[in-house]
């Protein structure tokens, strides 16, 4: 049973609106890129099969809405994540400043049992823009922040040009795999001999 569980790795991508979360996922899963900005609504995932140490895994990559008003149902989907990707735009200082908020929000909401060692990966995206002339967050600064948060792996990426995306997700998958699964060990307190299941509690229509 546990072997089946370990075949699926859940990854959540967080970050401000417009940093390229959807583009990073699309580039990695479909090798496609579109320059057009399209907001994401709610949470949405794509899967990708990855081979690692001779085993096949399914990477379940959750792309999220960066705009709060498109996250009306809350973040129950954080539950059971194996790795959290924090993305920002190297050309927008605010998106970097907000990484801390995203990280803390994730730790509070997902409540992993060992928050100190929960695997994060930081992606500094859009390094291609204007030949790097418009960037405002230096690699040094980003790395310093990552180091201060328990040596978070850091990648500079360009979803547009596909630069470093593959390598980043390889690292993401590796770290997700290292994360000890938090399978809630469930043991039924009564063995249901009759096997008839529990009483149906639902009221209303019988659907």
């Amino acid at each position: 049973m546990s072997s089946r569980r370990r075949m699926l790795l859940k990854v959540i991508i967080l970050g401000d609106s417009g940093v390229g979360k959807t583009s990073l996922m699309n580039q990695y899963v479909n090798r496609k890129f579109s320059n057009q900005y399209k907001a994401t609504i709610g949470a949405d995932f794509l899967t990708k099969e990855v081979q690692f140490e001779d085993r096949l895994f399914t990477l379940q990559i959750w792309d999220t809405a960066g705009q709060e008003r498109f996250q009306s149902l809350g973040v129950a989907f954080y539950r059971g994540a194996d790795c959290c990707v924090l993305a920002y735009d190297v050309n927008v200082m605010k998106s970097f400043d907000n990484l801390n908020n995203w990280r803390e929000e994730f730790l509070i909401q997902a409540a992993p049992s060992d928050p100190e060692n929960f695997p994060f990966v930081v992606l500094g995206n859009k390094i291609d823009v204007d030949g790097g002339n418009s960037r405002v967050v230096s690699e040094k600064k980003a790395k310093a922040w990552c180091a201060s948060k328990g040596n978070i792996p850091y990648f500079e990426t360009s979803a547009k040009e596909g630069f470093n995306v593959e390598a980043a997700f390889e690292c993401i998958a590796k770290n997700a795999l290292k994360n000890e699964p938090e399978e809630e060990i469930y043991l039924p307190d009564t063995i249901d001999v009759a096997g008839g299941g529990r009483q149906q509690r639902s009221s209303g229509c019988e659907c």
Binding site: T22, N26, T40, G42, F70, S72, L73
Partner: peptide
Amino acid sequence: RSELRDLVGKNLHVLSQIE
């Protein structure tokens, strides 16, 4: 209803992602 809105809106997101 307001909480449920993203379930409906997500369809539009899916449409926009269809190449």
